[in-house]
Write a protein that binds this DNA or RNA. Structure first.
Lengths: 119, 119
DNA sequence: TGAACATATGAACAGATATTCATATATAAA
DNA sequence: TTTATATATGAATATCTGTTCATATGTTCA
């Protein structure tokens, strides 16, 4: 739906110049879409648990599955999503693949979220 | 599925003492579920855009809908979710309700996410 | 090469969720 | 009270997503 198709408040509630300024500073839809996609990756308890485990130690898929009480397949599917979001990296060592956090943003994002909840 | 039902790696891939330590330090499932629920709220582009707008200025529902090119109903539904997550607050002023960010965690979480993407 | 093991992945299904539509509630003004 | 405006919300629907199951790929060892 185009912006022009939206019904406007007709009374006290229209703040034209404020709206203009807001629109100007708003990143384009695509950038915010990507941002939402990133948080969507954090928005699943299985993936959060995987990340939380990896905060402590790198682990192979099998150990991850064991630690979380989940099937290897389910964990592997979620690792794929985490890898695509560049939140984890995989390192093959023989038959096993060891996963670790890609960088420290994971920790800071999770910490900020936890702070909000515990507050 | 209980942890005991999971098939284990049988070869080189089992790291018993590492697993024990990880399990010990892992917050219980409920706490991480709540954390995932919080990030789920950030994981929708409509809500991210609402939050991004509110980073700049408090706005009434109608202005929000206009700014985002969405219907009042859709925005209102999303505001409800944001309010339940204590990310925004509503303040009635006559017929209008003005929404604003509840606290500064929103900004820091979004900033961290954006840093990860821009990197 | 063949067997065993660890991981990855496609398809299908069940459950979750964002938007729309209709309508209810809340406030202000006539 | 009646009318108009702003917001909230329940129900229905279409879309998306996580897990399971079956199977493929990759690696090691005999």
């Amino acid at each position: 739906m185009a912006i022009n198709d939206v019904e406007l408040c007709e009374d006290t509630c229209i703040h034209t110049e404020r709206l203009a300024k807001v629109r100007e500073n708003l990143p384009d839809v695509d950038a915010l879409y990507d941002l939402a996609e990133l948080f969507k990756v954090f928005g699943d308890s299985t993936r959060i648990r995987i990340l939380y485990v990896l905060l402590q130690s790198e682990l192979c898929v099998c150990d991850l599955a064991e630690a979380l009480g989940m099937t290897q397949s389910a964990v592997s599917h979620q690792l794929r999503i985490l890898k695509q979001a560049r939140l984890v990296t995989g390192r093959r060592e023989g038959k096993s693949v060891f996963y670790a956090l890609a960088d420290d943003h994971v920790r800071s994002i999770i910490d900020q979220g936890k702070e909000h909840i515990d507050e």
